[in-house]
Design a protein around this nucleic acid. Sequence first.
DNA 1: ATGACTTGCGCGGCAAGA
Length: 258
Amino acid sequence: MRIATWNVNSVRQRLDHLLYWLKEAEPDVVCLQEIKCLDEAFPRAEVEAAGYNVATHGQKTFNGVAILSKAPVEITRGLPGDDADEQARYIEAVVPHGAGVVRVASIYLPNGNPPATDKYVYKLAWMDRLIAHARGLLKLEEPLVLAGDYNVIPDARDARDPAAWAGDALFLPTTRAKFHELLNLGLTDALRASTDAGGLYTFWDYQAGAWQRNNGIRIDHLLLSPQAADRLCAVRIDKDMRAREKPSDHVPVVIDLN
DNA sequence: ATGACTTGCGCGGCAAGA
């Protein structure tokens, strides 16, 4: 089973890229972030015509997540823990796989900049809610894939220029500590299960020729429960998508589970 | 040294992103 995550930075702006990539990569499940539209504005018919069931948790202008799946799935929208939170950043699916299921979440973790504001407070609180929810999901002892744009650079080797990110909400020690708290529940960073190499990035800023200079960061992650990690066969980053005309600033990250 | 793009909204430049 092939599962991918991709922050598309507006699904309507990226529809051609998405349809091209679905055909090329042939994923079974795709977690999208930053669809940046209401549910009714999602290009549902086009994606369904490509062979996918579509479940969205959209929002006007900002945020918005979706899960595309070849098989019909059972969907839950929103991250538990704060009924007042109106930002659409979490959607979860139970996907049939063989005789059992794989549970897959599409996550758009808050950016949190600037750090001296309530935006950073919100980021940390959201991470606490994700940790609490993940703790509950792990008790199910299912194959579980928490996939998305975490807005967390886990380690210095995950940035071309770590010093430039020193005071940033994506790389502050508090942010990284909370990410490790999540991992320490028993989750495996899929990419790190396959390599210790640095220089593997998933995001390059639009500005200042970041792509041309390979000035990237790794912030899109697939975190696996033990039952999913045991089945991990392959991990890849579809970097080529960043070189196309009018790309997203993020590229797809893809895993294969047996 | 500084700013450097891209989006949505909606038609004038902001806010937000990372």
